Each structure stands twice: as C-alpha cells, then as structure tokens.
Simulated scan of single mutants.
Amino acid sequence: MKLTIFNNNGIKTGRCLKFKKNLLKKENNNIIYLEIKRFLFSQRQGTNKSKERSEITGSTRKIQRQKGSGNARKGDIKNPIFRSGGRIFGPKPRNYNFKLNKNLKRRVIKDIINLKLKKNNIKILEDFDDKIIKTKLVFNLIKKLNINNKKILIIYDIYKKKFFLSYKNLKSIKILSINELNSFHLANADYLIFFESAIKKILKINIC
C-alpha cells in the first residue's frame, strides 16, 4: 500500500510512502479495548471519599429506647438513616491503574494505525515549518486535504513552533509528539496526519 506525501499547501509532492504487506494484518480488538481502558483509568484521580458512621461528628447517645416505642430501632444521631448521618458503603480513595506490557502498548498503536490505513484515514505531510503564524494557512491546508469539520490528530517528531501556534484556535485539531502518542487519542480521531519523519520512526516504511 502507498500513501502520497503532501506539502504545506496540501499539494502532492510526487513522493509516497510504501507500507509492507505484513503491516496490514487483522487487529486484535481485545488488546485495543484493554489499552484504551488502561489509559482512561490512569486519568482518574481516585480521591473520592465520603464519611462513614464512625467519622461523623455527633453525639453517641441513643435516641430512643430499643423496645416499646413501636418504631424501628435507631441507635445514635449518626445512623445512616438520618439526614447528615454517615454513608453506608461510600466511595473510598483507590488506585484505578493497572499494568500492561510495553510490547502490548506498542502493538495496540500499530493496530489502530492499521485500522486507519484500511479506512484510508491517514495523511502524510513532508517536514516543514510555516514562515508566519497564521491560522488561515492551516485551515486552507486542512481544506485542501478534504478533512475539514473532522476530528484530526497531528503527530510530529521535530517541534515546529510557528506551524503549531497556528493550530491553537482550531478546536477540532489535537497535536501530539511521538513520545506523547497514546491509543485513546489515536482511536478517537477521525483522521491522522503524520509528518514524514514521525511515521518513519513508528513504522517500517520505504520512500518511493
């Protein structure tokens, strides 16, 4: 499979990237699910806490006698059946993280890229940096690539200051470096835009 490389104006450069056939294999949906679940769980603080009966400030005096009143037994004012009483089985601080192997994480990233390749939802840009900071230039590039009004993830290897500052006002676009790349943002984007140097590092490909 071949992907055309575009320049900063969204015009074909005449060069392309050739992917090996063994790259386009069947994805493992189970490990994709586990890795995205791991990423989302790691974003949780796990600091929710409610006070139980023993942690509430209040009198421990028995409100009414145990028998003879005709009502249910109640205990003290901290009983969970009363307003401002303790909470039964409330949330406690906990760690939501769970571990997956590094090799599995790398495989999931490749599997998601494979899936996007099959759907033709990947674009390649040559390595460049804009001369001026202007959002209109970036908007025109996205429009030329026919992917405007879509959720877009741009992956880079070498930081390009003026190019990235031009993207700040476009809410539908997210930018990540190779080191920040994760399965959730890859799967969540409608289209992936790779800079040439970035995709070469992630996948084994040839220029034609």
Rank of each mutant, 00 (worst) to 15 (best):
E55D: 07
L141M: 05
P93Y: 05
L181Y: 05
N28F: 10
L125K: 07
N103Q: 11
N182K: 13
K162P: 13
F184V: 15
L137D: 13
I32W: 12
L34E: 11
I109A: 02
K174W: 01
I173L: 07
K21C: 14
I122G: 07
I205K: 03
M1S: 11
G90Q: 02
R107Q: 15
N97S: 14
K171L: 09
I175M: 05
K119T: 09
K18E: 15
K18Q: 15
K200R: 01
K143I: 01
K99C: 06
M1N: 14
G46H: 04
P91Y: 09
K20Y: 08
R38W: 12
P80H: 09
N48L: 06
Y156W: 08
P93T: 02
H185L: 15
N48Q: 11
L3F: 08
S197G: 02
E35Y: 13
I11W: 07
D157S: 07
K67P: 05
L3G: 00
I36Q: 12
F41S: 15
L165P: 01
N29T: 14
I124A: 08
K18S: 15
N146L: 09
K18T: 14
I202K: 02
L192P: 00
G70P: 08
N22P: 11
A198F: 00
K171I: 11
L23F: 01
K160Y: 10
G68Y: 03
I142Y: 02
I5N: 06
T47Y: 12
K162Y: 15
K20F: 01
L186C: 07
F128V: 03
L203I: 13
N179M: 14
I88N: 12
K67D: 11
I32R: 03
G85R: 06
V138R: 05
F195W: 01
G90S: 05
N148S: 07
I155R: 07
F98N: 09
Y191Q: 05
N121V: 09
I63R: 05
N179F: 13
N206D: 08
K92E: 00
T60K: 07
K150V: 09
N48F: 08
N179W: 11
V108T: 13
I113N: 01
R65Q: 03
R87L: 01
I132K: 12
G14P: 12
R107T: 11
R73F: 03
L153E: 07
R15N: 05
R53Q: 08
G90N: 01
N179L: 15
K118A: 12
G90R: 06
G10Q: 03
L100D: 05
L40Q: 11
K201M: 04
K204S: 09
